[in-house]
Amino acid sequence: MESRLSATDLKTTPLHALHLELGGRMVPFAGYSMPVQFPAGLIAEHRQTREAAGLFDVSHMGQLRLEGPDAAAAFETLVPVDVIGLGVDKQRYGLLLTDEGTIVDDLMMVNRGDHLFVIVNGACKDGDLALIQQRIGSRCKVVPMFDRGLLALQGPKAVDAVKRLVPGVEQLVFMTGGAFTWEGSDLYITRSGYTGEDGFEISVAADRAEAFARALLDQPEVKPIGLGARNSLRLEAGLCLYGNDIDTTTTPVEAALNWAMQKVRRTGGARAGGFPGADKVLAQLDGTQPVARKRVGLIALERVPVREHTELQDADGRKVGEVTSGLLGPTIDKPVAMAYVDVAHAAPGTRLNAIVRGKAVPMEIAPMPFVPQRYHRG
């Protein structure tokens, strides 16, 4: 549906004018006009992020505050995640679930001390806001901050660029955050991102986002990066894209996201369960309700990119799964993919055939990430 929106129907981020100035090729994405690439092109932008630092505009994503003394306990009723035990300025990945235990959205949350700071996906943010307000709006104040800018600076040299502008930010470690200022503007910065590289996500007032982005782009390590390289980077890092690899047809266990559900929410004790779809999710976790399919990684054994919705077959020509994301990985220099396959065919090393334009392309199930993650854990 998004591709049929006219340019006048699309929303813009605070960096829209800067994207045009930099030669960004704009496309509809999550209801916004967003740059899919800049003149250097996807491969150069991908390598720039792996080797130095790339600046991404992720302002289309939804930023929320959950305020009040009951906010953490209230939010814990919506996600299979330890929210109450999250330390101040600590960040955690989470999942909003349906009553059937399938995934409404994936998100990031930070305990800011006096409130929870939550970042949800752009295409889901209005629905997420409505769901959160409906379910827990009586227990905490739900404040959308959809007009704020959000920048992601990713890559091994990201820290060098940011610390010149915001001294002290280098002391953060992966999945922690802090409040900072830049030229009188309040920033909230987390050491996180969605590329598999070290990096930072920076929440900034809309009217200061362009100035801060320009200051980052003035650093010698930094170049602008579009949606195309953002997708290839996250796929090489084995990270799910909502709407492709996870959605309301997939459960966390099918999606191999067991690690995102902490023990305190899974086994025994007063805080186990109590989230939407808990009976189904917990039964899948302990094996009393076996899952029929699993999310896996695949590497093609021929140099043929395998795209989403491609059918996967076993050696006898039976359909055993479907690709959800796929492309030629620029760093690994091989076609890589994610897919859901029957559990019987999900073991690493299993050979399957992807049917690309009627031709069988041999693929092998491989562990993810395809490229080693390089988060700064201190």
Rank of each mutant, 00 (worst) to 15 (best):
R112S: 09
L352Q: 05
R234S: 06
G149Q: 15
L64F: 06
P305V: 00
V110D: 14
L64E: 07
V253P: 11
D57C: 10
R25V: 14
C124D: 03
E2S: 09
L217C: 06
G31C: 10
V320D: 07
S3L: 15
P14H: 12
I246M: 01
L15W: 01
T13G: 05
P69N: 01
A74H: 02
Q262Y: 04
P35I: 06
S59E: 12
A73V: 07
T102R: 02
Q262F: 06
G349T: 04
A315F: 00
D106F: 01
N121R: 00
H60G: 12
P28S: 10
S325P: 02
Q63R: 08
A347C: 03
G24Q: 02
V361D: 05
A260E: 05
R230D: 01
G199K: 13
P167V: 04
A215K: 05
K263R: 13
L285A: 13
E21Y: 04
K163M: 09
G113E: 07
L18V: 04
G113D: 01
Y242K: 06
Q373R: 15
M34P: 00
L22I: 13
S138P: 03
N111W: 05
M108C: 09
R307F: 15
V79F: 01
A130V: 02
L10H: 01
V79W: 06
V371M: 10
V306E: 01
S138T: 12
E51F: 03
A209L: 06
F29C: 10
H345F: 05
R351N: 07
L165N: 08
D207E: 15
E322L: 10
V356G: 13
G137C: 04
E183F: 09
A229I: 11
D99F: 08
E254C: 05
M108T: 10
G228C: 02
V320Y: 07
G238D: 09
A205Y: 12
G297R: 11
V142T: 01
G149R: 13
V83R: 04
S33Q: 08
K141M: 07
L22W: 12
R25N: 13
R266I: 14
L129D: 00
T13K: 04
V142A: 00
A278D: 01
L285C: 09
K280Q: 14
A7L: 12
D82W: 00
T248H: 09
D207W: 03
S185T: 15
V120Y: 00
T251Q: 11
E201P: 05
D82P: 09
P224I: 04
D279K: 14
A215T: 11
P156D: 05
A215G: 00
H376W: 13
E67W: 00
E197A: 05
H19Q: 11
H115R: 12
K294P: 07
Q63P: 06
D9G: 07
E67N: 07
V304N: 04
G62T: 02
V264F: 07
V306G: 08
V306M: 01
R234V: 01
